[in-house]
Simulated assay, not measured.
Amino acid sequence: MAYVIAQPCVEVKDKACIDECPVDCIYEGPRMLYIHPDECVDCGACEPVCPVEAIFYEDDLPEQWSAFGPANAEVFETVGSPGGASATGPLGSDHPVVEGAPVLSV
């Protein structure tokens, strides 16, 4: 299990969660941020600092954003587990679910 970033983050990318993450497992894509499921230690530090309430424990992900659970994992299939976002820089592309997602009004 891991935390997941969902629809409300699309085009927001506040990055307060990155500052709070003790294991550097939150990666930046072109339209939103992603939590690497193999690197996340389930500490929950990222969740309360998200200004748009886009971070959920995987089991608590709202049904309307259920596609974002697999998307957070699948975006890393080609990247692997680099062991920290700060060393790798931004991801080159978003997951197709994110590429097609509308921007929510906040």
Results as ranks from 00 to 15, higher is better:
V10T: 13
E11Y: 05
E11T: 13
E11Q: 14
E11D: 15
E11N: 14
K13F: 04
K13A: 11
D14Y: 11
D14V: 06
K15H: 10
K15F: 06
A16S: 12
A16P: 00
C17Y: 06
I18C: 14
D19Y: 14
E20I: 00
E20H: 08
E20Y: 10
P22M: 01
P22Y: 01
V23Q: 00
D24R: 02
D24Q: 01
D24M: 03
C25M: 00
C25E: 02
I26T: 04
E28H: 00
E28P: 00
E28K: 00
G29D: 00
G29L: 04
G29F: 05
G29P: 04
P30Q: 08
P30D: 06
R31V: 03
R31L: 10
R31W: 00
R31F: 01
M32H: 04
M32V: 09
L33M: 13
L33Q: 10
L33D: 12
Y34M: 02
Y34K: 04
I35P: 09
I35M: 15
I35H: 13
H36E: 06
H36V: 04
H36P: 05
H36M: 05
H36C: 09
P37R: 04
P37A: 02
D38A: 03
D38R: 01
E39N: 05
V41H: 15
V41F: 11
V41Y: 10
V41I: 14
D42C: 06
D42V: 02
D42F: 01
C43T: 11
G44M: 13
G44L: 12
G44Q: 07
A45E: 09
C46N: 03
C46P: 02
C46W: 00
E47V: 13
V49F: 01
C50D: 08
C50N: 06
C50V: 09
P51A: 11
P51T: 10
P51L: 11
V52T: 07
E53Y: 14
A54C: 13
A54N: 10
A54Q: 08
I55Q: 08
I55A: 09
I55Y: 09
F56Q: 07
F56D: 03
Y57G: 03
Y57V: 03
E58V: 14
D59E: 11
D60M: 07
D60V: 05
L61N: 06
L61M: 14
L61Q: 01
E63Y: 04
E63M: 07
Q64N: 11
Q64M: 15
Q64G: 04
Q64K: 14
W65T: 03
S66E: 15
S66G: 06
S66C: 08
S66T: 09
A67D: 15
A67G: 10
A67Y: 10
F68S: 01
F68W: 07
G69N: 09
G69L: 10
G69M: 01
P70V: 01
P70S: 03
P70N: 03
